[in-house]
Amino acid sequence: MTEPHFLEVKHLAKRFGTDHGELTVFDDVSFGLDKGEFVCIIGHSGCGKSTILNVLAGLDSPSGGEVYMAGKEVRGPSLERGVVFQNYSLLPWRSALSNVEFGVRARFPGWSKSQVREHSLQYLHMVGLKDGAEHRKPAALSGGMRQRVSIARAFATQPQLLLLDEPFGALDALTRGTIQDELLKICTETHQTVFMITHDVDEAILLADRILLMTNGPFARVAESVKVSIERPRDRTTIVHDPGYYPIRTHLVDFLVSRSRELSERDDAVRDAGHSREARAQALAPVDVDPAAEARARAAGEAPPEALRTLHSTPAAAPLKAVNGR
């Protein structure tokens, strides 16, 4: 019924054998990403976000399910998927510039030395590294500058998909703000497709087109796909005045505070109820939510949009009503 997304994640599962038997981190995670989309994923610590990202990167293999990018199954790491880790992952014996050149040389093996250098410097300047800082080793750079180098390296290799694992988690609020602005600017310019893990609700709203919400593990899943219908270009200082901002924020916080746990409990019940496979899959499929549109509709005294009404009345999603109902 729908054409395949640029990135298709289908029934992804990850199980670990532990001393206390098998741990199923998640066993049915499905979602899609379109080209040029910026998608954030939020969920409590330990629900499996990094595991999902590593599977997308090809660094980890799932216990079940598949990932397709541009129609091709993801089976290993590729330069088409750039990764930025929380701990920067710069090679400490190389300077900032040399770290970026490392990526550029791997991506464009035919380029001359000066081409590689020029391209690398361009991306370093784009993230604000200049005036000699590009020749310093990572140990001589601040956390914020290191993450900038890491981002420059990822963008300089021009991947089709950029994967970011809590890239700003270790930075102070001020630095985080400026790098968010830079990331926002670069993504707008390059139409980069991004999948990003964050635990910062405001960061997600500022950056994302869509926010995926994960239930608590074990047996975590992507429960909701929240549309961020706030006009671009966005600005950190003015975005909070957008009428859509607080409905979205409240929805996200609400999810993290109570629904993530309640949904996990409901999922357990659904799994134990012995539904047919289809009914179960439908019950556990992510639902699309648009809190900003919903709020607008409520303010206008209208009924909620069609999509939301069907969502809340499908039998399989009935238990959702009790949880989601307000």
């Binding site: 660094l59 590729s78 998927r81 990764v83 880790f85 701990n87 992952s89 090679l91 014996w93 991506r107």
Partner: peptide
């Protein structure tokens, strides 16, 4: 592991990984 992952995500050959990442590390 992070540095080895950097080599992997950049599709380095085993030889390049050995000489450009593991040896200096």
């Amino acid at each position: 592991k992070d540095w080895v992952n950097v080599a992997r995500t950049h599709e380095l050959t085993p030889m390049s990984t050995a000489f450009q990442v593991i040896l200096p590390a």
